[in-house]
Design a protein around this nucleic acid. Structure first.
Lengths: 334, 334
DNA sequence: CTGAAAGCGCTAACAT
DNA sequence: ATGTTAGCGCTTTCAG
């Protein structure tokens, strides 16, 4: 059942059918109704390939993410997909893992499918330098980096202010009497670097020496068990710290588990305010990077590109500390 | 840059270019190399729309899910996407929420995009009866239900044996001395019904009366806080139960939280063996429905449809109890 | 308001 | 081994 069949059944030309399909401008109400009736009756839907061929778009957006199974990214994909869908756009999903080779291959696959734009979910999609493939993609279609930053023409960046968030958390802990923070992290993404920079800056302003940073910034392994084990080792080696900040909720939870195992109690702060923070016990105080707003903004700026140029190409949102049982500023005594 | 440009630059016809693009059968090595060189040089990629128009496929699969933000579904999407990708297929993602209207609309959107098949992620995609839209979609393209069951031509079902899993868990608890289980759930999906049936069957075989079921099967609200509150209420009303089974990890965790709040200790078993189970404390014993195998099987059976008919259209996988701190069968005394 | 016809870029059957 | 050509189904000028 194609446009010719419908034309025949309706007793009009295919041009008129096309007009009806596309809103019905310049079609008499009578013809319009008649054609629509036939379309409904036959359950006809226009062939997107043919349409795509002529228009060079299939109203499809590509999203690249390292791992949808990660609750934080899952939430991001959920927001993006839903919001894009409200614009009538479908989403092609690409899971890249962390190797550059795979990322580039997935990017190319999306490009080959002629998506209208590409969203990069999280700074794990970007390299610390280079990003050639992404930059050259941005020459052809809009590229929107959600929570990362790549400075090149055609790339829209929407990110939370991670550096400031960690920075001020260190101060909040300090002001509550916890002055020897341990910072745990496990990747070296752009975002991870921002967070570390925040930690270092705060420590330095608080008069910590370099030795302190060496001791109190710990890279953790990949599984929850290994993470906890690494922290236990630290505890048992009598390393000095009186509170913990994790670069992601999972790391903070690993710390909570280790502390619990040694019957230790101290403030713990996570990052992302993911579902894990609510589930953990004690419930985890976590830095919320306002993911939904981030996604809304990203989609909005992308949408602006479809009608002109975006009102901004670099947006930063401040984070917010969501206080739960693992640390409350009001309990400001040690 | 299209196939004509490449043909011109290579000094051959577009047919030859097409052959080279599609594997190079019936092309002399010399021409093949020359053409490939030009293609690389120009960074040419065939237009998928034109290709799709002729072949009536764009090598794209649609996946429908109620909510990617749910860690369990996120994991499922992750497996499916990756495995499909290994077959050279791209994934169009549709988030439907739970209203039938939305589900049908999303289904239609995917159908309109001429996907080669549709995967339904989780039984939340199916209604308890009806499913007309899905059944009629299955007349046109393969429909693969992952963890649900719709009995109609063209629909491939791959599901875990939820009924048996709950059934045997009740017995395991019983054999360990816990004979008054509380079952908490919150939806009425197909899968939820299976689980309930398992609970009822076990209870009935253990000689429980109908009154027991009325008291010991509790539907919980939607947020973690509300869930816990509901269970607290039960505890405070002195309802009798000595262990808890949740239809999903989140519900079991809500129970754990409520119990902790009243300083109560009893076995708790969750369902899905999601990341939440590992994060919870005590770590949550959970029923693993072997999601990865489920997804592998689903993709495999779908793949078989591309070359003939699937070796099976209804596969059931047995679940496995992953024992963690919230309940271990070896501690079989009350 | 409506129709005729060109063109979007590719594949595949048919010739050579 | 290579070229010619007829579609695939739609949108969009351009005429009328």
């Amino acid at each position: 059942m194609n446009i010719y069949d419908i034309a025949k059944k309706s007793g009009v030309s295919i041009a008129t059918i096309s007009r009806v399909i596309n809103g019905g401008k310049n079609v008499s109400k009578k013809t319009y109704d008649k054609v629509l009736a036939v379309i409904e009756e036959e359950g006809y839907t226009p062939n997107v390939f043919a349409r795509g061929l002529g228009l060079n778009t299939m109203e499809t957006i590509g999203i690249l993410v390292s791992d949808v199974a990660d609750p934080y990214y899952a939430q991001m994909i959920s927001y993006l997909t839903t919001k894009l869908h409200n614009l009538g756009l479908n989403v092609l999903l690409g899971c890249t893992g962390n190797s550059l080779e795979n990322k580039n291959r997935e990017l190319q696959m999306l490009l080959d499918k002629r998506v209208d734009a590409i969203f990069l979910a999280g700074s794990s999609q970007q390299e610390l330098r280079g990003n050639q493939a992404i930059k050259s993609a941005a020459k052809k279609i809009p590229v929107i980096m959600v929570n990362g930053r790549i400075n090149a023409p055609g790339i829209i960046n929407v990110a939370s202010n991670d550096q400031e968030a960690i920075y001020s958390s260190v101060f909040k802990l300090h002001n509550s009497g916890f002055s020897k923070p341990l910072y745990v992290f496990n990747t070296y993404t752009y975002s991870a670097h921002q967070k570390m920079a925040g930690f270092k800056k705060a420590c330095s302003e608080l008069g910590k020496q370099k030795a302190f940073l060496r001791e109190n910034m710990l890279q953790l392994p990949n599984t929850l068990e290994e993470m906890s084990a690494a922290i236990l080792k630290l505890i048992d080696a009598d390393k000095e710290f009186d509170c913990v900040i994790g670069s992601e909720d999972m790391l903070a939870i690993a710390a909570q588990k280790a502390l619990k195992e040694r019957d230790l109690k101290m403030p713990v702060i996570g990052y992302n305010n993911s579902i894990l923070a609510k589930v953990s016990s004690p419930t985890l105080t976590s830095i919320d990077n306002r993911l939904e707003e981030l996604c809304s903004k990203a989609v909005k700026l992308f949408h602006e590109t479809t009608t002109g140029s975006p009102s901004s190409t670099y947006v930063t949102l401040d984070c917010q500390l969501i206080e739960r049982d693992s640390f409350r500023t009001e309990n400001n005594t040690k």
